[in-house]
């Protein structure tokens, strides 16, 4: 019993150390030359450009539902005028970065994990190592960079479409005064809120790529290990773990920055 507990603890610590080293190596490889532009552009297309539609869609509807809920809640206190502030603040501070990160994790994170896992499965990663090509540099550095560039941009897009969605519902449909909506937002959303949202989205970018890529990269160390089942299990774990970590991390960043 005690031995099992000890062995379990050692294994967990080992795993933690391994993925920690994975992150450090990736970040180190981002910094050192040579820099290659094209692989990063491809990843930006994959993680960023291909996610734009999903982000526009979810952003709009999140803003719309905020407008709706906010209006009926605020009306009880007779302060519909604060709708703009409520929608703006909740989007810029919380919902924008978090929902963007979750959507991109579902879309691109799962794909990253499956791709890397299959590369591990079919010895492509071994082949890279044997050709003396650093897999951290070749595979992961472009993904990290692309995510770090894309997440804040996608988050901004989410915020803007959300605010427009809230405006359409609040002002056009429910008849809140347009000036009050915009003025309230202008007064209450300050630069600190925007910074906070951007810092969050940067952290989420790193978390997403880190967890999804390392789950695929260390596929062969899993007990269930190889084969289609191994890849599917790793992908599921990667998405769940990334999403949970994003939400947990969100709490702590908020607690620190507020």
């Amino acid at each position: 019993m005690v031995t099992a507990l000890g062995a379990w603890t050692i294994k967990q610590l080992n795993d933690l150390g391994r993925v920690g080293r994975f992150l450090l190596r990736c970040l180190f490889q981002i910094i050192v030359p040579p820099y290659k532009l094209w692989p990063m552009v491809q990843q930006i297309h994959f993680i960023g450009a291909a996610s734009v539609f999903v982000i526009l869609f979810t952003g709009t509807f999140t803003g719309m539902v905020l407008g709706l809920q906010g209006y009926y809640s605020l009306r009880q206190f007779g302060s519909e005028g604060a709708l703009g502030a409520a929608v703006g603040l909740s989007l810029v501070r919380e919902l924008g970065p978090v929902l963007t990160a979750l959507m991109v994790t579902g879309r691109a994170g799962s794909a990253i994990c499956a791709e890397v896992g299959i590369m591990r499965n079919t010895e492509q990663i071994d082949a890279l190592t044997c050709m003396a090509i650093n897999p951290y540099k070749f595979l992961f550095a472009p993904k990290f960079l692309a995510a770090i560039i894309c997440f804040p941009l996608l988050t901004s897009l989410f915020d803007v479409t959300g605010i427009v969605g809230g405006y359409v519902i609040g002002v056009k449909l429910l008849g809140v005064n347009a000036g009050a909506y915009l003025e309230g937002m202008y007064k209450s959303v300050v630069w600190e809120d925007v910074y906070m949202g951007m810092i969050k989205s940067l952290c989420f970018a790193v978390i997403m790529v880190w967890i999804c890529a390392s789950k695929g990269y260390y596929l062969h160390l899993n007990k269930a290990g190889f084969g289609a089942e191994g890849v599917s299990r790793a992908t599921t774990q990667a998405v769940v773990l990334s999403s949970v970590s994003i939400l947990v991390c969100d709490y702590f960043i908020t607690a620190i920055l507020l």
């Binding site: 079919t122 010895e123 492509q124 071994d126 082949a127 190592t129 003396a132 090509i133």
Partner: peptide, 28 residues
């Protein structure tokens, strides 16, 4: 890495990078 520069390896399944063309694979 330097030692491996002397190595060439043909893996069981070929281990070709499936996102690259044959040309790019060999040129890599």
């Amino acid at each position: 890495s330097e030692v491996r520069m002397n190595f060439g390896v043909l893996f069981q399944g070929g281990a070709l990078f499936d996102s690259l063309t044959v040309y790019d694979n060999i040129a890599l």
